[in-house]
């Protein structure tokens, strides 16, 4: 298997009036070609900053150190215009909130056409101006959109020509979500980042979107950010769990789900599993404050199995069987960092 994306020691900070926020701290992450990686973690753990950093859209945050090697090139070293060629054409994004991610002033067709123009002509202002055009575009454009929509199980559901003339507010959430996926696919990207693809949807649309994702992950590299365990389970081969700006556990999906090693992962998974049951276990304590870190492991104030060493030393990443864990419970004595 070939590595497509390899993130090493990525540090991202935000300078705010209240102080410096360390949103990502020494992230190590790897995604193989044609593999689907699921990224899990509670709100505010830094997953959003991580995937935005992959596209170098983390502003006003700054990447202070680390590398993001994609297909042999370090993205942190690219110029702005080189980076623009990566966005959409190499790495495409399916955003979380379908209700705000489409520009309300343009038709669906205009916005899909834009993705196509970017792919074929680059993202310059003149080459992509289509303010005046109907958005229905050429025959070839129509065919291509139809094909992609067909793949998204929308081909039979809607009349493509009519859909292209619609404005985002005239569509249902499920359709908008799939328009966004189609927009990402039209750029023929090597990798797709899907941010919470199922959270903002109703039940029926969620099931359909899951099917679509399932089909897509057969043929392309994907990074799915979600706390919907069903979505992760059905699509991902490997998972990574984030807490406090760090990846605290990563490994094959089945292995992590069946035998979570990090105490946080255990709690996180049990919370989600019980979400339809009656007794809700909870991760006690406050959500982490990313400005004033506790000394040592960032999870130790909330950790049910905290040891004295946890409040003194940041745990190193250690390999246990096929997974990687950053926890003192598994420390072997030698430190790697």
């Amino acid at each position: 298997m070939k590595e497509l994306l390899k993130v090493t020691g990525l540090n991202v900070v935000f300078d705010t009036p209240a102080g410096r926020v360390h949103a990502n701290r020494g992230i190590n992450l790897m995604v193989n070609e044609n593999e689907t990686l699921g990224l899990m973690g509670e709100s505010g753990c830094g997953k959003t900053v991580l995937f935005l950093s992959l596209l170098r859209l983390q502003q006003p945050g700054r990447i202070v150190s680390g590398s993001i090697v994609f297909d042999g090139r370090d993205l942190t070293k690219l110029t702005t215009s080189e980076m623009q060629q990566v966005r959409g054409r190499q790495i495409a994004l399916v955003p979380q909130d379908h209700s705000t991610a489409l520009n309300p002033a343009f038709t669906v067709g205009q916005q899909l056409n834009e993705a196509l123009l970017v792919r074929d002509n680059g993202g310059g202002l003149w080459k992509t101006s289509l303010i005046g055009c109907s958005g229905r575009g050429s025959q070839a454009f129509q065919e291509e959109v139809k094909a992609v929509l067909g793949e998204l199980a929308l081909g039979d559901l809607v009349d493509t020509g009519r859909l292209l003339g619609r404005y985002p507010h005239q569509l249902s959430g499920g359709i908008r979500q799939r328009v966004l996926i189609a927009m990402a696919l039209l750029g023929h990207p090597r990798m797709l980042i899907a941010d919470e693809p199922t959270t903002a949807l109703d039940r029926a649309s969620r099931v359909q979107t899951l099917e679509v994702l399932n089909r897509l992950c057969e043929r392309m590299t994907m990074l799915i950010i979600s706390h919907d365990l069903d979505a992760i389970r059905t699509t991902c081969e490997r998972v990574a769990v984030m807490y406090g700006g760090r990846i605290i556990e990563t490994g094959p999906m089945l292995s992590v789900f069946r035998n979570p090693r990090h105490p946080y992962t255990r709690l996180f998974l049990s919370c989600q599993k019980f979400s339809r049951g009656d007794v809700l276990p909870e991760v006690t304590g406050d959500v982490l404050n990313l400005i004033d870190f506790p000394l040592g492991c960032s999870f130790h104030p909330r950790c049910p199995r905290a040891m004295p060493v946890c409040s003194e030393l940041e745990p190193a990443e250690v390999h246990v069987d096929d997974t990687m864990v950053a926890c003192h419970l598994y420390a072997t004595g030698e430190t790697t960092c």
Binding site: Q84, A92, P95, N103, R119, G122, T128
Partner: peptide, 17 residues
């Protein structure tokens, strides 16, 4: 600050576009 601006950037449009 709107999502669609972020999305437009993620699509690969230039800053001026």
């Amino acid at each position: 600050g709107e999502d669609y601006v972020l999305m437009a950037q993620a699509k690969g449009l230039s800053q001026m576009a």
